[in-house]
């Protein structure tokens, strides 16, 4: 079982790229430890900015740095980054088109029993609603690294959500990756599973369990929530009976919504959206919560069987 988290993968990638790029700057809001970015701060103190517990300032300062040529990665818990500093993300980053990558760490229900203040179940919706902002939720560490490498090649704003815990490996360092194109993990005849982030390994296990029951499921890793890869979705959904989305997010404005929007206009299809409910969530570890709300492999299999 892989122990390297996606936030560690981001740090390792930035450490490597910063060897030859003095313009890479990391900005944290007392979050360098929780973002696993302390090694970057220690190695490149001249390319690291600490703003203290001040998320609005985190994003505003990042935009100013970027407006002067810096390639900025600003990391803070997704719960605070996506809402406390929402207007700075809207005006200073998205509207202004500054070269800032906002990294929402410990996204979704990563913080488990810390409760609703620390959950970010609306970050996909909030960030997707901003004109000029791209939104990503990579699944494993290899895809995360490829994503960071790709984002370093352009200057447009992005929001990335990563989880607190390590995700099982789905790919390897030689994986195919094209920015804004979903990764097709498997093709299937009966069902198409569409998942993002930490939900992808659960969906993969569900796919294997469904195969054992004689149900052929395909799986799309839709790490790119915006721009949303509707072309691949429609192509893979065309010949199945059912599409099932799985996301660690509220029902509004996330993967399920984007999938429904794309299918309804281009490929009407039976759709089951699996997500966290629009209510105060129970206490527990993230894994316990996934199981409770039917987002784990067992829950996905159950939904598929019921719908078919």
């Amino acid at each position: 079982m892989n122990k390297i988290t996606n936030r560690q993968a981001i740090c390792e990638c930035l450490l490597e790229k910063a060897k030859n790029d003095r313009d890479i700057v990391v900005v944290c809001s007392d979050s360098r430890g929780s973002a696993s970015l302390a090694p970057f701060a220690e190695t490149y103190p001249g390319q690291f900015v600490e703003v203290g517990i001040a998320e609005q300032n985190l994003v505003g300062i990042s935009a100013g740095l970027a407006a002067c040529g810096k390639k900025v990665f600003a990391a803070s818990p997704a719960s605070f980054l996506a809402t406390r500093s929402y207007e700075q993300a809207k005006v200073d980053v998205a509207y202004s088109g500054t070269n800032v990558t906002l990294i929402g760490i410990s996204g979704g229900v990563s913080y488990g029993a810390l409760g609703m203040t620390h959950h970010s179940c609306q970050d996909f919706a909030a960030m997707s609603a901003l004109t000029g902002m791209r939104v990503y939720n990579p699944s494993d560490r290899f895809q995360t690294t490829k994503l960071i490498e790709a984002l370093l090649k352009d200057t447009e704003p992005s929001y990335i959500r990563v989880s607190r815990s390590a995700t099982e490996d789905l790919y390897d360092g030689n994986m195919d990756f094209t920015l804004n194109k979903a990764n097709v993990i498997a093709d299937g005849k009966d069902v198409l599973l569409v998942a993002c982030g930490e939900m992808v390994p659960y969906a993969k296990k569900a796919m294997e369990q469904l195969a054992a029951k004689g149900i052929s499921a395909g799986l799309l890793d839709m790490y790119c929530l915006k721009p949303f890869d509707a072309d691949t979705l429609v192509e893979k959904a065309r010949d199945v009976k059912l599409v099932v989305t799985v996301e660690e997010h509220a029902p509004q404005g996330g993967l399920g919504s984007a999938t429904a929007q794309a299918l309804s206009s281009r490929c009407p299809k039976r759709l089951v959206e699996k997500n966290l409910p629009d209510e105060h969530l129970i206490s527990g570890t993230n894994r316990e919560m996934f199981a409770y709300y039917g987002l784990d492999d067992a829950g996905i299999v159950k939904s598929v069987e019921e719908a078919l």
Binding site: G64, C68, T98
Partner: peptide
Amino acid sequence: INSGSLGHGLAVGVGMALAAKMD
């Protein structure tokens, strides 16, 4: 940079001034 919502300029200015110090 685009502006208009109040309370944004000083933080952006801090980033610009920091970039000057870095370079």
